[in-house]
Design a binder for these strands. Structure first.
Lengths: 173, 173
DNA sequence: CTACTGGGTTTGAGAATGCAACCCTCTGTG
DNA sequence: CACAGAGGGTTGCATTCTCAAACCCAGTAG
């Protein structure tokens, strides 16, 4: 509770570092995963993540303070709370999905769960497996790893290469 | 070794948990960020992330073992290594980008760095700020938070609601 | 000979984590 | 009423991680 959101960001000024400050603690993202999956109660999150109860309490409090999670009572008298994602929390969907996609590809090639997609604004579309891709709204094209470069407008950045050279030699082991 | 250390995954079988097992340790993703940004040498990564040297050593070794990072000598005689992303590592680009996007939106609204985009396969396109979105390759539509549901084909999952109900109403702070 | 660079190890103290056990407030059930 | 859960945490303590600074070693520059 002595940890306000205005943490010191390590290294250089960077939104990735700032985001990890909030989300990078152990169990935080697994708790968020459970909230996405519709499990809003403490015990259920404990069971599904395997997190120690005290750690989960701490993480949920921190996420609440960071504005990712909201704790709302669902019963007075035995005062009980359940946890819900705020808008900021719901906006983590791309993040959890890219974690899921990466894990599916590189760690668990036979994934225990897949995502289904049906656009809300096109109900004619049948439900189908989600095959997610990054695209750029500006040009409408899919974003590939090498297509992105950095525009730095802040001091505290040192780098040599003019471009975040995504390597060249691609010899996967 | 393409065989990632498939340690024990906490909670239920899940690619997110598996991915966090590899990437969830402190400093791991910041190190990956530096590699994306073209900083391949130990000292530079230390300076830019602010990580303690011993931690960074440990993290880089773990990432190497997990097949995310590759250590290659760039000088014999004083034997020196530099670190590069493997294909699995480069495939983390969507993840770091979604972290960046989230941080930009919710934590550092005046971001110190932005991403520029130019599709390699369309060189006529001028360089422009990346405005990233998730889309589904199958239906071509943008993926919104509420459009996704789960298809579970593995035991060890408990959940009530039929759909990962993304909440209903919330207000950001 | 000295200083400096790059890439680490080592050390010791302090913080964070994991785990089990405990607590407190209701709501059944007999 | 007594007793047993369920839900949502605390508490205590041992283990592990993390941090910062110091140290090391090879080669090179002055």
């Amino acid at each position: 509770m002595t940890t306000p959101a205005a943490h010191h960001i390590p290294g250089r000024p960077c939104s990735i570092a700032a985001a990890l400050q909030v989300l990078g603690e152990k169990w935080a993202l697994l708790a968020v995963r459970e909230l996405f999956y519709g499990n809003h109660r403490f015990d259920r999150i404990v069971r599904n993540t395997g997190a120690p109860r005290d750690r989960l309490t701490a993480r949920l409090r921190a996420l609440e303070e960071a504005g990712v999670v909201e704790r709302r009572p669902y019963s007075e008298r035995p005062l009980r709370y359940e946890y819900h994602l705020t808008e900021a929390g719901r906006d983590l969907a791309p993040l959890t999905q890219s974690l899921l996609a990466w894990g599916d590809r590189w760690l668990l090639p036979d994934p225990p769960v897949t995502l289904l997609h049906r656009p809300a604004d096109d109900q004619d579309q049948p439900v189908h497996p989600l095959d997610a891709a990054w695209t750029c709204r500006t040009c409408g094209q899919e974003v590939h790893n090498g297509d992105v470069s950095l525009d730095i407008h802040s001091p505290g950045w040192d780098r040599e290469g003019p471009v975040p050279d995504q390597d060249s030699a691609t010899s996967p082991s």
